[in-house]
Simulated assay, not measured.
Amino acid sequence: MREAVIIDAIRTPIGKRNGFLSGMRPDFMLAEVMSNLIIKNEISVELLDEIIIGHSPLIGEAASEMVKLAGISTGIPMHNLGAIISRQCRSSQQAVNLAAQAILSGDHDIVIATGVEFVSGFSKLLNKNVWKEINKQRVAAERIADIWGISRKHLDQYALNSRQRAFQAKKEGRFEKEILPLDLIQPNGKTIEVKHDSHLTKEYSIEDLSLIQPFFQENGKIHIGNSGKISDGAGAVLLMSNTRAEEMGLRPRFRILNRTVLGTDPSILYTGLIKGTNEALVNAGINIDQIDIFEINEDYASVPLIWLQETKADPSKLNPNGGAIALGHPVAATGIRMLSTMIHELDRISGRYGLMGVCEVNGIVNVTIVERI
Rank of each mutant, 00 (worst) to 15 (best):
Q93G: 15
S35W: 05
P266Y: 08
C89R: 03
D107Q: 14
L308Y: 05
N321W: 01
L211Y: 11
I72H: 15
I53C: 06
I373G: 15
F215S: 06
V116P: 01
A236I: 04
L355A: 02
E172R: 05
Y270C: 10
D265L: 11
Q88L: 06
G15K: 10
A333N: 12
A280G: 03
D347Q: 14
T271L: 10
S198M: 14
R87D: 11
S162N: 05
K312R: 13
D265I: 09
A62M: 09
R352W: 00
A63G: 11
S198K: 14
G82V: 00
M240L: 12
E32L: 07
E345Y: 14
E193V: 15
S316G: 11
T277D: 07
V67M: 13
S340M: 03
H79K: 15
N41K: 03
G322F: 00
V237C: 03
H199S: 14
S302T: 00
T334K: 05
E172L: 08
Q213T: 14
S35V: 01
I224F: 13
R253W: 07
L355Y: 11
R259A: 10
R352I: 12
I212H: 01
F20M: 11
M34V: 08
M248P: 06
E295C: 06
T271W: 14
N129R: 15
A62L: 11
L257Q: 08
D292M: 05
N242L: 08
I212V: 13
T264R: 09
A301N: 06
E42N: 15
V370P: 10
S302R: 10
Q290P: 10
I84A: 05
G60E: 12
L182F: 01
T12A: 05
G173F: 03
T74K: 06
H344G: 02
G23F: 01
K229N: 03
S302I: 05
I72L: 15
P252T: 12
